[in-house]
């Protein structure tokens, strides 16, 4: 199996690469269009700000490429948010794979923003292994995707939001599986085990 991690100006590419190493998976980090298109699985990581990241993807024409991929693609954190139609973060038009608006968390009472730390996920019709229902994953984010028809896992913070999504060959998680101990590595395994 050939796994490609899309190379762009995201903050957690190295962390994702190390997670692949711990899982014993061969991977490459590349922005080469042909190499991405021919991979068996594609990982679209992300830490950073929506607007500048979209600008970067557009400059490399990776925005159009990602939308048209046919193999299983996993978006992580900002990667998941950029797969949506629009983000309130700096008024950013995104890839539009999921027809959703990414909204900003408004702090409520003791619930601070960013949502930072370990929170549990409730699976719903999910591609994530059933044994991970109610597992704690590591989240760090100030924007969220509301619950919608493509939601594959729900987490509650300030209000219920999408912890995972899926539509066709596109998979996504809001949390950081590469930083969520062994349960996070099992989420990555769930994705890597998907038959395309």
């Amino acid at each position: 199996m050939k796994v490609v991690i899309i190379k762009y100006n995201a903050g957690n590419i190295r962390s994702m690469a190390f997670a692949m190493e711990r899982l014993g998976i061969d991977y490459s980090i590349t922005d080469n269009q042909e190499e991405i298109k021919t991979a068996d699985k594609v990982i679209f990581p992300g830490v950073g700000e929506a607007r500048s990241t979209m600008d970067y993807l557009q400059a490399l024409k990776l925005d159009l490429l990602i939308k048209d991929l046919k193999q299983p693609v996993l978006g992580v954190c900002l990667g998941m948010q950029l797969m949506c139609a629009y983000s309130e973060e700096n008024d950013t038009k995104c890839l539009g794979i999921f027809d959703e608006t990414v909204k900003q968390f408004i702090p409520k009472n003791a619930e601070k923003v960013p949502h930072m730390g370990w929170n549990s996920i409730a699976l719903s019709n999910s591609w994530i292994d059933a044994s991970l229902d109610e597992a704690y994953m590591y989240f760090v984010h100030s924007y969220y995707v509301p619950v919608n028809q493509n939601t594959a896992a729900i987490t509650d913070y300030i209000q219920p939001f999408s912890a995972a999504l899926q539509k066709d060959n596109f998979y996504a998680v809001q949390f950081h599986p590469e930083k969520s101990a062994t349960v996070g590595e099992n989420v990555l395994r769930s994705f890597l085990n998907i038959q395309s």
Binding site: R14, F18, R22, V140
Partner: peptide, 8 residues
Amino acid sequence: IARYINIP
């Protein structure tokens, strides 16, 4: 550390 540690 990043290579071997799977928590933040």
